[in-house]
Design a protein around this nucleic acid. Structure first.
Lengths: 188, 188
DNA sequence: CGGCTATGGCTAATCGGATTAGCTTTATAG
DNA sequence: CTATAAAGCTAATCCGATTAGCCATAGCCG
């Protein structure tokens, strides 16, 4: 039907790259249009404004993150799985600060929402790890939320330079994971 | 010297209230001026623009939070102190969502910066709790960062409706604290 | 092959909020 | 009582997002 230049997915992907490069704060329609070799208003044929773009970037990020962690924990269990998850998570957040920042403030509605579903997939990976530790179903919700706070908090602080998170960054992160591991092994 | 109507502190405080009421996203110079019964440009005599206002709200929030948690853990140690800290933290974040949101993305520079110093005071309270658990100095940094991730993550998720954090909110939060408590008691 | 139509792009215009410029008032120090 | 500097105000500017409305063309159908 139409001439096939740009697609919505292209715009979102380019937006994500831009956010990673210049920082989430400076993600702007004008800059994005320029990067795509197009005039600003044209973007509105593909996304429904800046807020929509942000939300879609968040969704992309959570989706990619979900794939990354799922792949990372494949065939692993217990400490190995937890460590793999943590490493994959930290790697993603570090490699894509803009994308992850988009997820920090994004409002999640309910089932059916793409962002919600993508989040659910990440949570499912967490649940798989926790089941490997023998966490009971009754406590699963709480344990998942605890992990979520921990990882999300890490990412949020990281992305805003919250800690002077200097050299011993990795060391603290490892300590944190080890702390959780011991705690979970003590559970069952 | 001048006529003494508004002071910088007034503006920041009113901005914080506004943010709590309408949400951090909708914090705007115009609305703030209106609330103060003043025209928008007048605000610039007290704060150095919107970014500065945001930063000062973040500083106010962290300062208030620091006082709240310090008061809460007074004379307590171990599990009691941890629980008191957690309760005070959650209470503050719930009561002042706009203020806390301001702190989430705020860049922290270094010593001498007011926000940095306020943060340091909160961290000192965490350190006091951890010392009560017998955490060694060598691990202190890591333990503090872990707590920080946990609490900050909780607040960030809470403020963006990240969990469906429905009824069992408090329950999960308590579980989380209990998990940390057991982990720390296992340390020493 | 030639016209139809929906779509993607463009220019021009609008809107809204932040910020700046420059003037005016007034509390107060001296 | 007056000089002054802070605090307000109005008017103007800027900039980025968004909207309105027009143009070009790719793909499809006869």
């Amino acid at each position: 039907m139409p001439r096939g230049r740009l697609t919505a997915a292209d715009v979102v992907r380019a937006g994500a790259e831009l956010a990673d490069e210049v920082g989430y704060q400076d993600l702007a329609m004008g800059a994005l249009a320029q990067r795509l070799g197009v005039r600003t208003p044209s973007l509105y044929k593909h996304v429904d404004g800046l807020d929509d773009l942000r939300r879609q970037i968040a969704t992309l990020a959570v989706t990619e993150l979900g794939e990354a962690v799922r792949a990372a924990i494949q065939g692993k269990a217990g400490s190995d799985a937890l460590a793999a998850f943590a490493r994959a998570f930290a790697t993603y957040v570090t490699a894509h600060p803009g994308r992850y920042t988009a997820t920090i403030g994004a409002e999640v509605s309910g089932p059916g929402d793409e962002l919600y579903d993508a989040s659910a997939r990440v949570l499912e990976s967490m649940a798989a790890i926790l089941r490997g530790y023998g966490v009971e179903e009754g406590e699963m919700v709480h344990a998942i939320r605890t992990l979520r706070c921990l990882f999300h908090g890490f990412a949020a602080l990281q992305s805003s330079n919250g800690f002077q998170w200097s050299d011993d960054a990795a060391e603290s992160f490892d300590w944190m994971i080890d702390f959780v591991d011991r705690g979970l092994r003590g559970e069952s």
